[in-house]
Design a protein around this nucleic acid. Structure first.
Lengths: 246, 246
DNA sequence: TTATTTTGTTTCACCAGATGAAACGTCGTT
DNA sequence: AACGACGTTTCATCTGGTGAAACAAAATAA
């Protein structure tokens, strides 16, 4: 699509290696070679660089790599309020007040999504949304948003996950992802839970990275497809506002 | 000194830029150029790379850079128990039990040190050590250990800090740093607080990075110079053990 | 206002140094 | 002993990272 090449390959690759640890906390060099599709020598050298700077460490027994103390050090210097869960809360509340359905925020963790923030509708019948809940990436509107906008071979790994539900058609799933990328929202009707519908959009940073999936969910009695589509512009607006904060 | 060159320059430099944010949470490009002593073009390109991957973000108004959401993301995937404050606690307790003086752990934050962990002596007269206390890098045994083993121009910045105490001789301070690097421990007698003495050693990661300063402190009535020097081997042993954990 | 400085962005020719293939080492397994 | 899996090192090739310098934009001075 866009062709901007003001980036440095070697650095880019080193950062990619760091991001591998989001999938799995401990990695052998071989696994990193597979994930990044770089040559053994390159990964070896970049890992040596990262290790020398303390960004990764290596267990001398298992010889596996994991994130090093520098990450911990940097994390201490990142503003607590940079946590999307805190940063996005006011905008989520505004959205909930406008529509009065439950609003959730999901980020990916490996092959799952985690609800890191939620504000519930104030109606008697409402979707309850405990923070911290973990759900698979195979079903649900926000799952598809996350997979649709994540670069790399996440899709392949989700599809080949042994936990993939036998009731779900892989080809349909792939087709839905395409649709999501063009229409920029995802809808699910009673996909994971009977009686529940949801509509989700992606939150991107200014640089274009996927930060999280924003979801509006409620009972199908109030949320038919037509209704949900009418909510989309409001959702998109909220996601844009949130993106600006990151 | 040591000549190992299995590292990648570009990646190394990108990581150096990230570490600049430990000093100051918001940096203009110019400041990063100064700190890293790289050329403008290089910093510009590397920042673009870091921004594209979400490791730094740029405030569109001030045009200043700060750490991005990826750091937050990685931080969520680092084991909570990788925090030195938790990781080193058992070894600190062992040390305290052996010597029965207060043991503290300091890390640097800008031009200060922060006590991130402490276990106190169980004697009636003892050094009390509240966790979270912030002290200047100009005085105290652990300050000098931190400055002595930190690469880059930390020393210059400490010396030119307007907060430098007028009572302390800069040349003496520099000389003491040299001594610390050769003898591998630092001693302070009533330097910051009357009646208190301290002996400190560095904790290095296996890769050779300074993680923290380990300090034993107590009343001068029990801690004369001779006595403290006898404690050094035990301190060094503890620091070695801790270094293995990182 | 115009001149000057400071800071950020883009271009470009050069060649340092990043790269991947392949060889080598070192385990553990059959 | 032969094999395979994984990590390490070497090396010839040539990509792509580099800094200087030009350019642009914005702030400050005059």
């Amino acid at each position: 699509m866009e062709e901007k090449k003001t980036t440095t390959r070697a650095a880019e690759r080193a950062l990619d290696i760091l991001l591998c640890f989001v999938e799995k906390p401990e990695l052998a060099m071989r696994e990193i070679v597979e994930k990044t599709e770089l040559s053994k020598s390159t990964v070896f050298r970049l890992l040596a660089t990262l290790e020398a700077k303390g960004f990764v460490k290596r267990d001398p027994d298992t010889e596996k790599y994991s994130l090093g103390f520098r990450i911990w050090e940097l994390a201490n210097h990142i503003n607590r309020s940079d946590d999307p869960a805190i940063l996005f809360l006011p905008e989520m509340e505004r959205l909930r007040d406008d529509i009065d359905e439950t609003v959730s925020l999901y980020v990916r963790d490996g092959l799952e999504r985690v609800r890191i923030q939620a504000v519930e509708s104030q109606q008697a019948i409402r979707r309850v949304a405990p923070i911290g809940a973990r759900l698979p990436l195979s079903v649900g509107a926000s799952s598809k948003v996350i997979v649709a906008y994540t670069e790399g071979d996440l899709l392949g790994r989700v599809l080949s996950d042994p936990m993939w539900p036998s009731g779900i058609d892989r080809d349909l799933y792939i087709k839905q992802l395409q649709e999501i990328r063009t229409q920029e929202y995802a809808i699910s009707m009673e996909e994971r839970e009977a009686g529940t519908a949801a509509v989700s959009v992606a939150i991107h940073s200014r640089a274009g990275n996927l930060i999280a999936a924003l979801v509006l969910s409620g009972p199908i009695s109030r949320m038919n497809e037509e209704q949900m589509i009418q909510y989309v512009p409001r959702l998109v607006k909220a996601a844009k506002e949130m993106g600006k904060l990151v």
